[in-house]
Each structure stands twice: as C-alpha cells, then as structure tokens.
Simulated assay, not measured.
Amino acid sequence: MRLSRPCLILLLIVQLAACGVMKTTPVPPPAPTSQAQQVTRAQTSTLQKIGTISVNVIGSPMNVEDAIQQRAQFAGARYYLIIMMSETIIPSQWYGQAILYR
C-alpha cells in the first residue's frame, strides 16, 4: 500500500512536531544544601552525572522517594532525578531508579 504525497507530508510534519515535545527549556538547579535534592529534567542540563541507583522497598511511593534520597546522600550526590517508580507484582513492594548528579 502506497501513501499519497499529502499523507506523507502530513506524517513528516507530525513526526517533526513530536520532536519538540521532548525538548525542555533549561532551568537552573536549586542552590546545594547539606541534603541531596530532587530536581526536574529541565534542571539537569548544567549538572554532572555521577551515576545511577535503584531501590526496592516495602511501603508506598513516598518510601521509595525517601530511600532514593538517602541512597543519593550516601553516594555523595547533591541532586537526583527519579526516572522510574513502579509497584512490583508483589503488593506494597515498590521499585525505583534515579540518576545522581554533582
């Protein structure tokens, strides 16, 4: 099956427009504190990535956030970006991943 020329042009326009959805305007991160701080993707453009961590906890999403913050602090990170948080197939068991930044 061949697509007509207008359909191909429309498809190309939609694909190019979708590329702009993933672009974020850089925002400066907050000033460093004595505790590791969670940041957004837009705040990571000037930060240096130092690694990744993962946690597996029993509890709630807040417990995952607390565990990630503690692990980031222990690793010497000033900032962290949570990239995934999901409940496992076991009820109340949560898994999370984060990128650490200096």
Rank of each mutant, 00 (worst) to 15 (best):
L3P: 00
S4F: 07
S4P: 03
R5K: 11
P6S: 08
P6H: 06
P6K: 06
L8A: 02
I9M: 06
L10H: 01
I13Q: 06
I13L: 15
Q15R: 09
L16C: 08
A17V: 07
A18V: 09
A18F: 12
A18C: 10
A18M: 13
G20F: 04
M22W: 15
M22G: 13
K23Y: 13
T25R: 04
T25K: 04
V27N: 01
P28Y: 04
P28T: 07
P28F: 04
P29V: 12
P29G: 12
P30Y: 10
P30S: 07
A31L: 13
P32R: 13
T33E: 15
T33L: 04
S34Y: 09
S34W: 10
S34D: 13
Q35N: 11
Q35E: 14
Q35G: 01
Q35L: 11
A36P: 04
A36D: 02
Q37K: 01
Q38A: 14
T40N: 13
R41Y: 10
A42P: 00
Q43F: 06
T44C: 10
T44G: 03
S45F: 14
T46L: 08
Q48H: 07
G51L: 07
G51T: 05
S54Q: 14
V55S: 05
N56P: 00
V57N: 01
I58S: 11
S60T: 15
M62Y: 12
N63Y: 00
N63Q: 08
N63S: 12
E65D: 15
I68K: 03
I68E: 02
Q69L: 04
Q69C: 09
Q70A: 15
A72Q: 02
F74V: 13
F74P: 00
R78E: 09
Y79T: 05
L81H: 12
I83D: 05
I83H: 00
M84F: 03
M85R: 12
M85L: 11
M85W: 02
M85S: 08
S86P: 00
E87K: 07
E87G: 01
T88E: 06
P91M: 08
S92K: 12
S92G: 00
L100S: 12
L100D: 14
Y101A: 03
R102S: 15
